[in-house]
Simulated assay, not measured.
Amino acid sequence: MHPNAAFAWDDTEALRAFAQDIGFGTLFMATPQGPRVAHLPFVFLAENRIGFHIARNNAMTQYLDGAEALFVVNGPDGYISPDWYGMDNQVPTWNYCAIEMQGNMRQMTQDELIAQSDALSLFQEAKLAPKPLWDRSKMADGYFEKMLRGILGFHMDITAWRGTRKLGQNKPDTARNAAADGAEQAGKRDIADMMRRLP
Rank of each mutant, 00 (worst) to 15 (best):
M1T: 03
P3M: 09
W9K: 01
W9T: 03
L15S: 03
A17K: 07
A17L: 10
F18P: 08
F18W: 01
F18Y: 06
A19Y: 00
Q20N: 13
G23V: 04
F24V: 08
F24E: 01
T26S: 11
T26Y: 04
T26Q: 10
F28Q: 05
M29E: 00
A30K: 04
T31H: 05
P32K: 06
P35V: 01
L40R: 06
L40H: 10
V43I: 13
L45F: 06
E47S: 13
N48F: 06
R49E: 14
R49D: 07
G51F: 11
I54C: 12
N58Y: 07
N58S: 15
Q62G: 14
D65C: 12
A67G: 08
A69H: 01
N74I: 05
Y79E: 05
I80C: 10
P92G: 10
Q102C: 08
M105T: 05
M105Y: 00
M105R: 03
Q107R: 15
M108L: 14
T109N: 03
T109L: 13
Q110T: 11
L113I: 04
I114V: 15
A115N: 06
S117P: 02
D118K: 14
L120Y: 09
S121L: 11
L122R: 11
K127S: 08
D141H: 09
Y143L: 15
F144T: 04
E145T: 07
K146H: 14
M147H: 04
L148Y: 06
R149M: 10
I151V: 15
G153K: 08
I158T: 04
T159G: 13
W161G: 11
R162A: 09
R162C: 05
R165M: 09
R165A: 13
L167K: 03
N170K: 06
K171M: 15
D173A: 15
A175G: 07
R176F: 11
A178R: 11
A179M: 02
G182F: 02
A183Y: 02
A183C: 14
E184C: 11
Q185S: 09
Q185M: 12
K188S: 13
I191A: 03
M194R: 12
M195Q: 07
